[in-house]
């Protein structure tokens, strides 16, 4: 299968005062259609910066980013905005829903931003809500939802614009392990059934057995990890303190 997203030799340098700090160094990775990929690594390893670059929020200092052969790494902010609106679905750490919208409106907002608010998209929103087991919550506001439900709404919202790539930034950080796993399983199911590519940045190594491939980041460098190591050490990071701190129950 052809790569849906391809990163080649990505580097990113930030200025910290007067000294340049290299946050990412020669990162290359690719994701194929229907693939669910995890990026793990300690804080400060550059995960978020990498996610921002993949998510068209930042441009790399050097290297190329391609989504479906479209080279977005040299795009201007205006074009990046279009890429985000059409090609990328975001799932943020704490769901980040808009507080005054109902579940259905959260999804319709995506259509509104892309100026594609129509019957077709309304049906689609209802279908997505249904897919994620939220049919009874369609008219609920954010404060009425549990953490797991919020995250499921965020997943539905990410799929609303029919993106090529789903980016999930610590989607389980505020959930307990059972709910967290359910959310990731749902995300996985949607990714597989809709044949999207997905990248999940996570601290939570308990979810890694659900992923197709794992990249581990450290000090701005990335390497692919064999799935075997995960199977053998299901919870290797606990001892290192990499376990998510927020462990709220539902």
């Amino acid at each position: 299968m052809r790569a849906i997203m391809k990163l080649e030799n990505i580097s990113k340098t930030f200025m910290d005062g007067d000294t340049p700090v290299k946050v990412l160094e020669n990162i290359s990775l690719e994701i194929k259609r229907g693939e669910f990929v995890a990026i793990v690594g300690p804080s400060g390893s550059g995960k978020s910066t990498l996610l921002s670059i993949i998510g068209a929020l930042l441009t790399p200092s050097s290297g190329t980013v391609k989504i479906n052969q479209e080279k977005i790494s040299s795009y201007k902010p205006r074009q990046l905005k279009k890429v985000r609106s059409n090609k990328i679905g975001f799932i943020f750490q704490s769901a980040n829903l808009i507080p005054y919208l109902t579940v259905k409106d959260q999804l319709l907002l995506v259509a509104d931003i892309a100026s594609k608010r129509n019957k077709q998209n309304k049906d689609k929103a209802v279908r997505l809500i249904d897919d994620l087991g939220l049919a009874h919550r369609e008219k609920s506001h954010v404060h009425q939802l549990s953490g797991g439900e919020k995250q499921r709404v965020a997943i539905a919202r990410a799929f609303m614009n029919d993106p090529e790539i789903i980016l999930a930034d610590e989607p389980t950080a505020s959930l307990d392990s059972e709910r967290g796993r359910q959310v990731v399983e749902m995300l996985l199911k949607e990714v597989k059934s809709k044949e999207k590519g997905a990248i999940m940045v996570t601290h939570d190594e308990r979810m890694l057995d659900l992923c197709d491939r794992i990249y581990r980041m450290e000090d701005g460098q990335i390497r692919e990890e064999s799935m075997l190591s995960v199977e053998n050490h299901p919870e290797p990071l606990h001892a290192k303190g990499g376990f998510p701190e927020k462990n709220k129950t539902l």
Partner: peptide
């Protein structure tokens, strides 16, 4: 501010 950040991340511009 945070909400506007989300809106912009999912593709909205300042005009919106």
């Amino acid at each position: 501010t945070n909400q506007f950040g989300i809106l912009k991340a999912i593709g909205a511009d300042t005009k919106f």
